[in-house]
Simulated scan of single mutants.
Amino acid sequence: MSAGSTDVVAQLRAAGCVFAEDEARLLTTAATETGVDLADLVAQRVSGTPLEYLLGWTEFHGLRVAVAPDVFVPRQRTAFLVDEAADLARTLPTEHPVVVDMCCGSGALGLALATTLAAEGRRIDLAAADVEPAAVECARRNLTPIGAAVYQGDLFDPLPRQLCGRIDILLANTPYVPSEMIAHMPPEARDYEPRSALDGGSDGLDIFRRVVDAARTWLAPGGHLLVEASETQVPHAITVLTEHGLTGRMAESDELYATVVIGTKPAAR
Rank of each mutant, 00 (worst) to 15 (best):
D168K: 03
S47T: 13
V36Y: 06
A135W: 04
L92P: 03
N173S: 14
A237W: 07
L170G: 02
A251Y: 06
A14F: 02
P160Y: 02
H236V: 15
D125M: 11
T116G: 05
V82H: 10
Q152Y: 01
E137W: 00
L126Q: 03
T174R: 02
P158G: 06
G147A: 04
P178D: 10
I207W: 03
V100Q: 09
A68Y: 04
D87F: 02
W218I: 01
L12H: 09
S5M: 14
V73T: 13
V234A: 15
L143D: 01
L256S: 13
G107T: 05
L12N: 04
R216K: 12
G153V: 10
V46I: 06
L92D: 07
C138G: 03
V211E: 03
D130F: 12
T144K: 05
D154V: 03
C104T: 15
E23K: 00
V67L: 06
I262W: 09
H96I: 15
T58A: 12
E33S: 13
Y176Q: 10
L205G: 03
A237M: 09
V9K: 06
P133N: 11
M102E: 04
R195C: 00
Q11D: 11
V98L: 10
Q152K: 11
A66H: 09
M181I: 00
E132C: 11
E21S: 12
T174G: 08
G107K: 02
R77L: 14
P133H: 13
G107V: 09
G121I: 01
V67W: 00
T232I: 11
D130T: 13
P194V: 11
L198H: 03
L198Q: 05
S253I: 13
A3W: 10
I207A: 12
D101S: 08
R123Y: 01
G16C: 13
A215Y: 02
N142V: 05
T264L: 01
A79D: 14
D40I: 05
L113T: 00
R216D: 11
T217S: 12
D199K: 10
T49R: 13
E188V: 11
R190A: 10
G223K: 02
V150Q: 01
V99L: 12
P145A: 01
D87C: 11
F208S: 08
L205R: 08
V9A: 05
Q233R: 09
L126A: 09
V73H: 05
A251D: 09
Y192H: 14
I124C: 08
V99S: 10
R269T: 12
V100A: 14
I238G: 08
T6H: 12
T239Q: 14
V234S: 11
D40F: 04
G248I: 08
S5F: 12
R13F: 00
G121D: 01
S253P: 13
A214L: 14
V73C: 11
G121C: 06
L88P: 05
V100L: 07
V9I: 15
T91V: 07
L155I: 14
G200E: 07
A237R: 08
V99P: 06
E243F: 06
E228T: 08
A79L: 00
P194E: 07
Y257L: 15
